[in-house]
Design a protein around this nucleic acid. Structure first.
Lengths: 239, 239
DNA sequence: AGAATAGTGTCTGTGAGACATTATCTG
DNA sequence: CAGATAATGTCTCACAGACACTATTCT
């Protein structure tokens, strides 16, 4: 950390300044497809272009970069987010025409109903397969987020945050399959869910289902719900 | 990214500035024990205190934060490092008495002979179990590095970088065990190594061993040696 | 020969996937 | 009752660990 070589001191002139920002890949699952949020940029560069929700780090307002990401998420996408996890830092001279920049990239996950309820009108949901036309290195950031999502999902409670409050096991399985991009064995899936034990059954089947046997409803156990605050266990620590 | 809320613009006064730094946890294995490098801080705060090798991000010199970490590693520990991987960002107002700071933490790995050869005289190797007296939040950073090391090791080629150029399988197994903190089944270990296929045998056994059967020497295949440049696959991307 | 460690062959239990069967709804 | 999907029981195969045995050196 702050160990300055003695020949130089902290200079604050334009050329030395580091532009510190945060970018969030906010993912959701809608109609079985992964999508992420883009909002039009309010200022130059790339003014008006659809970009990841992001913003400068504000030392006076933000307790740390996590708080900064939460603030940006709330301001740009109107969402609190149910899962927020640090991805990686993207940095360098080339990525931002204004100069040398450092962006702490995050990835977040919400259920699409929650998202739709508060998403600003000018925001768009882009299909995860389409990374065309993104400004800066936002395509790289989205790719990193998708990769992380895939690798983190088998098996954590993460994908359950793409579901509504309550859900059936077949629904949840479909989400896992969408996120990991491959079919899962039904029996194995159920065994795994039971073993991991972060689900609890809800009273009352799924009566209004259709012409078939109703399914049991489940929800995340209490401990696994308040993700935003408690994330950052395991690999990713720090804020 | 850079989407500034319209009520404020980038102000460069002291209170708004973000202190951008890099800190590296440089790990090695010596006499079967994990150790990490500490160097005395050259300037206030904590002048003279043993701290992680670190320094300010220099936009004029550093291509990106990875290059910055490499520069710091070279300057403070005299080492090029064989594995360098982004850990996480540590940030906030409290961690540095000078003000709101953002440190990109890295973890690096070297063989102890290489390290000892160029380590500055004022540096020290601290046992991984001893996190006492570290300045800033360096104890948190080291903890994160150790956790990452443990979780990333089973089974990647990472621990092999804690070995000399050539090594025997029993030696390598001991390294894995030290890093993961638990004994490994010999047969499983060998099966795994063969399956992962990043090792190749070296001509000539380990004749001068002792009163027992000599062991085959192995080394990392070409592709797995130049780690510094190629890392950042899988989870951690960006720089 | 005996001690010590390297390296290999084989057995077994665990767990994941495939498949089949039973259960429960609607029309 | 037929059709549809949920839920569960069971078989098999792959794999990881345990154990035992063989191999090769030095004293």
């Amino acid at each position: 950390m702050p160990n300055e070589s003695k020949s130089r001191t902290v200079r604050k002139d334009e050329r030395e300044a580091v532009i510190c920002t945060v970018d969030v890949v906010l993912l959701t699952l809608e109609a079985g497809r992964l999508r992420f949020v883009l909002v039009p940029r309010e200022a130059a560069p790339f003014k008006g272009v659809a970009a990841l929700p992001g913003g400068f780090v504000h030392p006076l307002e933000d307790r740390d970069v996590r708080a900064c990401a939460e603030r940006v998420l709330k301001a740009k996408a109107g969402v609190e987010g149910q899962w927020l996890e640090q991805l990686s830092v993207f940095s360098g001279k080339a990525r931002d025409p204004r100069g040398w920049s450092l962006s702490v990239a995050w990835f977040a996950v919400v259920h699409c109903d929650l998202l739709r309820a508060t998403l600003p009108a000018n925001a768009q949901l882009r299909d995860a397969g389409d990374l065309s036309g993104l400004p800066f290195d936002h395509d790289d950031i989205v790719r990193a987020a998708l990769e992380r999502l895939g690798s983190k999902s088998s098996y954590s409670s993460l994908p359950a945050h793409l579901c509504p409050e309550t859900f059936t096991l077949p629904q949840l399985q479909a989400v896992y399959e969408a996120v990991m991009g491959e079919p899962i064995n039904k029996v194995s899936f159920r065994r795994k869910m039971e073993e991991l034990a972060f689900l609890e059954p809800v009273e009352g089947g799924m009566t209004r289902g259709g012409a078939h046997r109703p399914a049991q409803l489940w929800r995340l156990k209490e401990d696994y719900r308040a993700r935003l605050k408690l994330t950052d266990r395991g690999l990713n620590s720090g804020s």
